[in-house]
Amino acid sequence: MSRVVFCEDDPMIRKLVQTALRATTHDVHMAEDGKQGLALIEQVRPDVVFSDVAMPKMDGFQMADAMRARPDLAHIPIVFMTASVQREQIDECFRHGASGHLAKPFTMAELRARVAQFSKN
């Protein structure tokens, strides 16, 4: 079981993720934008963060940069979920310290496998 924070501005995708992971034992927390995400990360200290890039108020990259600037949060892995499969955009994710990338649309098996990959036993 592990704690996971999801940052995603699209309500349908938030619902999808929540539903897909409810059968698992993970402790899942949802944020609508990067600002909310950062506050949630500070509060629950997750094992892994999954984040959209294009979000209001603070985007995924800004949120990642803010985490990297905080010694207590810098170690938490981030997986970016993007709708773009263009090489440059994926590279940009890794430049902002991503530990992984998940392309939209993703299958539920992919999503669960990625969450499991970063889970503590």
């Binding site: 699209d10 349908m12 995708i13 999808l16 539903t19 897909a20 059968a23 294009a54 709708a83 773009s84 263009q86 939209k104 649309p105 993703f106 299958t107 539920m108 999503l111």
Partner: peptide
């Protein structure tokens, strides 16, 4: 093209994900 491919994938994620769950769960 890049805007559209981005925008189309968001609703597609929901369509694909929910239908997958209906099928397999």
């Amino acid at each position: 093209v890049s805007v559209v491919s981005h925008e189309f994938r968001t609703p597609l994620t929901g369509i694909q994900g929910f239908s997958e769950m209906m099928q397999s769960e």
